[in-house]
Computed example of a mutant assay.
Amino acid sequence: MALNTLKDVYIDQLQDLYSANRQSIEATRKLADKATDAELKSALKDGVDGIERGIETLKPIIEGHDAKPTGEFCKGMEGIVKEVDAHALNTDFGDDAVRDAMIISQYQRMTHYAIAGYGCVLAFAKRLELAGEVTKLAECLDQTYEGDRRMTAIAVNDVNKVAA
């Protein structure tokens, strides 16, 4: 597809974000299974729920522009998910808290990718004056930021202290 207008870029990036969310949800489930800190495990499970809500929000927006949600495959998130596998899921750790610290690090990398994606599509939706979509995308962005702040708090107040 040729990207000739801002709307074309917007749809392309919505599809990319949809793909990124679909890839990150499975990785987040695996991270939740490996986590040992109860608060971390709970936050990751809530993260799965949030990613699912993001997918449910993006799908009708994309379809409303006569596009397929699966029209793009996000290679950026594919790389991040490979890093999750290599550094958090398929690595031997001598201490559960150290693994939990790595899990937070890897989860936040996925989250930061999502924050960038939601921020971009939100800016495009505002410029395109798509008020209903702006509201929905702003909610997704806010929820993603909140999940990131929660992970930081868990790391700083608990997991990193134990891991040290």
Rank of each mutant, 00 (worst) to 15 (best):
L141A: 04
G119Q: 01
L3P: 01
A35F: 11
R22T: 11
Y10P: 04
K136R: 15
T91N: 12
K75V: 02
V159E: 06
T144I: 03
F73R: 10
A35M: 00
H65R: 13
S42E: 14
V162C: 06
A2N: 09
V84A: 01
A155V: 06
V98P: 05
V81A: 10
V121C: 08
D8P: 10
L141K: 10
K30M: 06
V84Q: 04
T70E: 15
M1F: 07
E83Y: 01
G54C: 01
A97F: 09
E52W: 01
Y113R: 00
D33K: 13
A20T: 00
I104S: 05
D66Q: 14
I103S: 06
E83I: 07
E39T: 14
L44Y: 03
A20M: 01
F73K: 12
C74D: 10
T28W: 06
S105K: 07
Q106L: 08
D37T: 02
L6T: 08
D142A: 14
A67C: 10
D12C: 10
G50M: 04
N160I: 08
R149G: 09
Q15R: 02
G117S: 11
G50D: 10
A27G: 04
A116K: 13
T135G: 07
K45R: 11
T28V: 14
I25T: 11
Q143P: 03
A163K: 07
I115L: 15
T70S: 14
L89Q: 00
G47L: 00
R53D: 13
A67H: 01
K68H: 07
A86E: 14
E83Q: 04
S105I: 08
D33Q: 13
T91R: 12
R150Q: 15
L130C: 01
V156W: 00
Y10K: 11
A27W: 01
A114W: 03
N157D: 15
M1C: 03
L44Q: 04
L89K: 00
E139C: 07
Y18S: 03
E72L: 09
S42L: 11
I11A: 06
L141H: 02
N90C: 07
M1G: 11
L130K: 08
V162N: 09
D37M: 06
L14D: 00
K7H: 14
Q13E: 15
